[in-house]
């Protein structure tokens, strides 16, 4: 077995273990976050809620609470999706950056292996993008009550998704191998421009999408474990697919050798 393949398998197992650990930590170790909105609940419920760790609502809401009820911050259970959604989203942006780097290297050095690496990285990006979209959509529905919102982060990420799909459509529409690789590399670089825009958009303009700032320790630890696990999975998928492509090319060469 090739060394890189062995590493890919080790990383796939480790990534699986770490993301599982993050999942367990998200529901056991991480404190349930609360929404800034408050709900009025009967006194008895409020006592239990506060005991369970839900903070009481602010003073103004307490004053306005109907008799016999107390305002508590609403628990934000759907925030638990964060521990998978953000690592997979970050992994998609990182893997796409790797695809852009290999595309640039291909344009400079014209080596076929760089094109293969870029294509494989783009494929891993697509897998992670689909994962991000599905988990994000479910979180959007649970948190905002709608399946989709045309707000800056969601819109720029949707554009990124379409660009990655377009990359494969473009590649499949060009017959000549050299031209396909060149067009693909140029398009990958063009598509990558959306990566920093998507990442920075929530910091540059008003957005409903939460920006990642100041996590409390109980949330930070499972999140970091999830990030490490997802990065390992990302690298493992990339390496596995690259090895597969390499074997395919070797197989084609051997067939040609036998036939010729």
């Amino acid at each position: 077995m090739k060394r890189s393949l062995r590493w890919a398998l080790i990383l796939a197992v480790l990534g699986g273990l770490l993301t599982t650990l993050a999942f367990v930590g998200a529901f056991t170790y991480a404190r349930v976050q609360t929404f800034s909105t408050t709900v009025n609940v009967p006194n008895a419920v409020a006592r239990k809620a506060v005991k369970a760790g839900f903070p009481a609502g602010d003073a103004a809401t307490q004053m306005a609470a109907p008799p016999g009820t107390v305002a508590v911050h609403k628990p934000w259970f759907s925030q638990k999706i964060f521990f998978f959604h953000v690592p997979i989203a970050v992994a998609s942006l990182v893997v796409m950056t790797i695809a852009a780097i290999f595309s640039l290297l291909f344009l400079i050095k014209r080596k076929k292996s760089y094109d293969t690496r870029a294509k494989v990285a783009m494929e891993a990006t697509l897998v992670f993008i689909i994962g991000t979209m599905i988990s994000g959509d479910l979180w959007t529905r649970a948190s905002w009550g709608v399946w989709w919102e045309w707000e800056p982060r969601l819109t720029t990420y949707a554009i990124l998704t379409l660009l990655v799909i377009a990359y494969f459509v473009l590649r499949n529409s060009v017959e000549d191998e050299e031209r396909r690789a060149t067009y693909g590399a140029v398009f990958a670089l063009f598509a990558w421009v959306d990566v920093p825009i998507t990442f920075m958009i929530t910091r540059m303009m008003p957005s409903q999408h939460p920006a990642l700032t100041g996590l409390e320790t109980s949330n930070l630890i499972p999140f970091m474990i999830g990030m490490a696990g997802m990065s390992m999975l990302g690298f493992a998928i990339y390496e596995l697919r690259f090895n597969e492509e390499h074997l395919r090319e070797r197989l084609a060469a051997l067939k040609e050798d036998l036939e010729g």
Binding site: A12, G16, F23, V32, V39, V41, P42, V45, K48, A49, A52, F54, K74, P75, W76, F77, S78, K80, I81, F84, H85, I88, V127, I130, G131, I134, S135, L138, W139, R141, A142, S143, L233, A236, I237, L240
Partner: peptide, 29 residues
């Protein structure tokens, strides 16, 4: 019932998100 209601309204979405991602990644690998 009220207390769990505050939390569990979101549960199907959370379960679906984790299940779909896990199955998709495990299946792909």
């Amino acid at each position: 019932k009220l207390l769990y209601g505050l939390v569990l309204r979101d549960a199907p979405f959370v379960i679906a998100a984790y299940a779909v991602l896990w199955l998709a990644l495990a299946g792909y690998v």
